[in-house]
Amino acid sequence: MKEKMELLKKELKEKLESVSDLKTLNELKTTYLGKKGPIGELSSMMGSLSIEEKKNFGKALNDLKTEVTALLEDVRVSLEEKELNRKLESEKIDVTLPSTKVRVGGVHPITRVIEEVEDLFISMGYDVVEGPEVEEDLYNFEKLNLPKGHPARDSQDSFYITNELLLRTQTSAVQARTMEANKEKGPIRMICPGKTYRRDNDDATHSHQFHQIEGLVVDENVSLADLKGTLEVFAKKMFGETREVRFRPSFFPFTEPSIEVDVSCFKCGGEGCSLCKGTGWIEILGSGMVHPNVLRDCGYDPEKYTGFAFGIGPERVAMLKYGINDIRNFYTDDLRFLNDFNRTEGGK
């Protein structure tokens, strides 16, 4: 009996070696494990055995079944694997062929700068405020210590609509509006980004339409040192952590003292290069302490409150930051130009 069983296994092993598909394997399985198969035949011989023999024979038969099943299973697994590999092989594609092009959009470089500046100042508790572009002479000039006939108005040739109405030449107009609206509430911390207009012919460095971001802080005991500290944070965020800020005296009618702000050159690090014209410094914005006349005209007591204001030019920042040499690029909107800005700077 034992020999018979060994023979059966040997015979199965031989057969399995030549099995190359699941169908044949399944037939073999039915043949061997089915009721009429050789194992079934063997088990039918059980009836003629003694109890003791039955016990031994049953165990041997079970072992045989398990062994046969395992042999068949091994082959099944290996066959299925082969099958899958064949399928994968047949499905292989040329991954080097070009992709399906999915459109990439993005925001304008000016928007990019504005949003970056907004986020920075919001993190320091500033509100982002907006104001009208068609503005009253009152807010654009008069309340900013620029009465009619003031010679400093000459430097801001304006697009007038009526004698009292013009396209704002500076977002500083929003300063006056914000102070006036806020005078009962006290301290102010705000920035105001937006479009501004001047009666200039467009060339590489002038644009009749451009943007400004006005900043204003009004509180008790605000000083030039506070202004400098604030602008240092701005310069480092926009132009790099190692930047320094330098103050030069200047004149703006709505600030006193007035300050022109330079940032250490981010191209040469301050050693002097073509970008900074050898000086190591680049002029980036105008600022100063809010003129007491402005505070007073907008309802703030200059004896109690002081404040600082600054005006950032997003075009100028973008031109410096990205190395753009013609301001008109921002308004001709060539998509090849714009699409260069359709990406992040890696979390910076």
Binding site: S223, L224, T230, R246, R248
Partner: peptide, 26 residues
């Protein structure tokens, strides 16, 4: 300030009340 020299100004962030900043709804 201008005769003394603004390079003597040591910048620091203003000590103001902590407040939440943000954009307008629009």
């Amino acid at each position: 300030g201008r005769i003394y020299g603004y390079d003597h100004v040591k910048g620091h962030l203003p000590l103001l009340n902590v407040k939440r900043g943000g954009r307008s709804e629009i």
